[in-house]
């Protein structure tokens, strides 16, 4: 299990855990990130937010916040 900010561009992952306060959890899940959902990392460049695709949507997520998302790499 690694955090999302460590996943290389082009990898597919499954979310296994998300940490954070109630406000963060509510916001991040409302944009489609939940446990068990599959993501494809589109861009992971230093100093830029993470860009990934999941649930029909391309999402940009701040690097700091993406450290709270734990994933298993599937591909």
């Amino acid at each position: 299990m690694i955090t999302l900010d460590k996943v290389g561009t082009g990898r597919k992952v499954v979310v296994s855990e998300i940490e954070g306060d109630q406000r963060f959890l509510s916001r991040i899940t409302s944009i489609g990130l939940t446990i068990g959902c599959e993501l494809e990392v589109l861009h992971n460049e230093n100093k830029f937010p993470l860009l990934f695709y999941g649930r029909d949507t391309v999402v940009a997520l701040n690097r700091e916040e993406s450290k709270n998302v734990f994933v298993e790499v599937v591909e």
């Binding site: 406000r23 963060f24 916001r27 991040i28 944009i31 937010p49 860009l51 949507t57 391309v58 999402v59 940009a60 997520l61 701040n62 690097r63 700091e64 916040e65």
Partner: peptide, 13 residues
């Protein structure tokens, strides 16, 4: 403090 949330944004097609 609670507003400090960084970017969480969808990129519309």
């Amino acid at each position: 403090q609670e507003d400090r949330a960084g970017l969480i944004m969808e990129l519309p097609p």
